[in-house]
Design a protein around this nucleic acid. Structure first.
Lengths: 112, 112
DNA sequence: AATCTATTTGGCTATATTGCCAAGTACTGA
DNA sequence: TCAGTACTTGGCAATATAGCCAAATAGATT
């Protein structure tokens, strides 16, 4: 049941893991808009350029972005167009959490 | 640009990170079908029950599942219905990778 | 109460991730 | 060729994750 799908589950997990970092999510959102060079992303994120470069490398390894060297600069773009739609469900989870949190606070208010 | 969204990006990343493990993806798929107790999932996955319990705890912390204790057992179910649709895009990434791999092998064949 | 089953938690080790700095590579332009 | 810019890679320390075993908790059964 699990062992049979394991390879596929691992492949999926690898993609999700690559996305599971705030800076990398930011990069994905930014690239959804338009391609960007490393220096642009570095400026936007405000970390060391080596850090951003490594994040991009993670995304590239996972097949989420592709790079294109043009002169001095390396431009990254999304490899699949759907990534952003993808977040609808993540948002649902967050909204459900927010509702619970609100409910929790109300209970807290009532019980005091 | 990044700092303003940081909290939200972190929240999203947390959800993705919770999903980014083969056993946890398996659990999510299984719960999409029907609710399951820890012992069922443990049997299906074939790891120590403490390991599975901790995976479930990660999913619960992330707001992806909820638990319901009935008698001796704890039943877990998905908290939001959309999780599985969610994987369409992950699949696209994997397919794109597969295509590249095929292309690479063809190039290899031609060049030899 | 004693025991059994189901689950969680603590503790441990091995391994992976993150982010910085420093050093290396690659292209550009004087 | 030399210097400057853009980027990547190596190396390191801090931190997080994974999975097992052992121990603790909680409900069920006798």
């Amino acid at each position: 049941m699990y062992q049979e799908n394991k390879k596929h589950l691992e492949a999926r997990a690898k993609v999700l893991k690559a996305m599971a970092h705030p800076s990398r999510l930011f990069i994905i959102e930014e690239l959804e808009r338009e391609e960007r060079c490393v220096c642009d992303l570095t400026e936007l994120i405000g970390a060391d350029i080596s850090t951003v470069s490594k994040h991009l490398s993670v995304l590239k390894q996972a097949g989420i972005v592709i790079d294109d060297k043009r002169g001095n600069q390396v431009f990254y773009q999304l490899r699949v167009p759907c990534i952003l739609n993808f977040f609808g469900c993540v948002e649902s989870v967050l909204e459900a959490q927010a509702q619970d949190h609100t409910a929790f606070m109300k209970i807290g208010t009532v019980s005091n």
